[in-house]
Design a protein around this nucleic acid. Structure first.
Ligand SMILES: [Zn+2]
Ligand SMILES: [Zn+2]
Ligand SMILES: [Zn+2]
Ligand SMILES: [Zn+2]
Lengths: 159, 159
DNA sequence: AAGCGAGATGTTATAACATATCAACCCAAA
DNA sequence: TTTGGGTTGATATGTTATAACATCTCGCTT
C-alpha cells in the first residue's frame, strides 16, 4: 500500500470508489462536495496524473461548470485543504490523493515524461532534516518531498 | 556542518569567501563567471535567504546589469546548473548553496516569515521513497526535499 | 587582418500560473 | 422573514517563466 502509481489496476472501479468515499466523508464532516469540486476530483482521478489548474479549467469549461481561473483554484484549494488532492510543487500541478482518509505526509515520484505521479509516504521528522530543525529550533509546518525522473513506460519510450 | 542557516556568523567574510571560492572553481572548470552571474551570486550571498527572480532582477537593473527577465533567469540557471545556487520549489525562489564544491542532495528549512533558508542534506534514496522507486522501476533523476515553517526569530516575532 | 563559431547578452513579446475584489446567489438557522 | 456564511460568477491584475530572434564578444583559423 505504500506506493501505488505506475502499475496497472482496475481504474474505473478505482475512480468510482474514490468518489463515493469522498462523498461519504464530506457528508460525515459536513463538507460541501459541490458540483465543481466533485467534477475536479473526478477529473484528477480519471487522468490519474498531475494536472495544471488551467488544464483542469478547460475541462470544467467544456462541462459549463465555470471558465475563469478562480473557479478551478477554489475547487483545488478545497480538495487540497481537505486531503482529497495534493499539490505537486515541482511542476505547479495537482493530483488526486492516493489514500485520503489517512493523515499523512506524501512523497511523490513524478514522471517528467507523462506526468504520472506515484504517491508514497515519508517517515518524516527523522532523518537529518528533522535533526537540523531540532538543532536550530525551526518549527516545521509542512514538508515537501518530490522525486522527478522517468517512469518505466517512459524509459522505454523516450519521445 | 550538516545544517547552517539561522545561527549568527561572520557574514561579510562568508560572502567574500564564497565568492572567491566560486571564482577559483570557475577558473578550474573553465566556467565563465561573468559580471551578471557573479553579481547574482553576490546578491544571493548577501541576502542569505531565498529571493525571487524578479527581486534579483530589480537589483541587477539598479546596477545597470540588465533589466529583462531572461537576464536574471539565465544567470540563475547557470548558478543552479553548476551548484552555486539552488532553486526552492515551494516558493519559486533561489538561494546560494551553503556548500558548493560537494555534490549533494540538498534539503531545505524555509521560514515562511522571513524567507531565510537553512540547507541540510538528505540521506534519501533509502527510505520509502527510494524503496518505492526501486519497486516500480522508476528512475529518479532529482529529489526535492523542502520543509516550510517558522525560524526561531519569526516564532518570537510574528508580524 | 578577415572570417568564423561558440557562448553570452539584449530585447520584445507572450505563455503559464495565481490571486484580489466585489457582486450575486443559495440555503439554513435564528 | 431576516440574516449571515459559504459558494460561485465575473473582471482585472499580479507573478513567474520562456520563446524567439538580434547582437555582441572573443578566441581561433585561415
Ligand atoms: Zn486508478
Ligand atoms: Zn512516464
Ligand atoms: Zn553568511
Ligand atoms: Zn524567519
Amino acid at each position: 500500500m505504500t506506493a501505488i502509481g505506475f502499475e496497472k489496476h482496475d481504474h474505473s472501479r478505482c475512480i468510482t470508489t474514490a468518489l463515493s468515499e469522498a462523498e461519504t466523508r464530506c457528508a460525515e464532516q459536513k463538507l460541501h462536495l459541490t458540483p465543481v469540486r466533485r467534477r475536479v476530483l473526478e477529473i484528477l482521478l480519471q487522468r490519474h496524473r498531475a494536472m495544471g489548474a488551467y488544464e483542469i479549467l478547460d475541462l470544467l469549461a467544456a462541462d459549463g461548470l465555470g471558465s475563469q481561473p478562480p473557479v478551478a483554484y477554489r475547487a483545488l484549494d478545497f480538495l487540497v485543504q481537505h486531503g482529497f488532492a495534493h499539490r505537486i510543487e515541482r511542476i505547479n500541478a495537482y493530483t488526486a490523493c492516493a489514500h485520503p482518509a489517512q493523515d499523512h505526509v506524501p512523497a511523490f515520484l513524478i514522471c517528467r515524461g507523462c506526468k504520472a505521479v506515484a504517491e508514497a509516504e515519508t517517515e518524516l521528522e527523522q532523518g537529518r532534516l528533522g535533526a537540523a530543525a531540532m538543532a536550530t529550533g525551526f518549527a516545521i509546518e509542512r514538508i515537501v518531498v518530490e522525486a522527478e525522473g522517468l517512469c518505466p513506460a517512459c524509459q522505454e519510450n523516450p519521445e
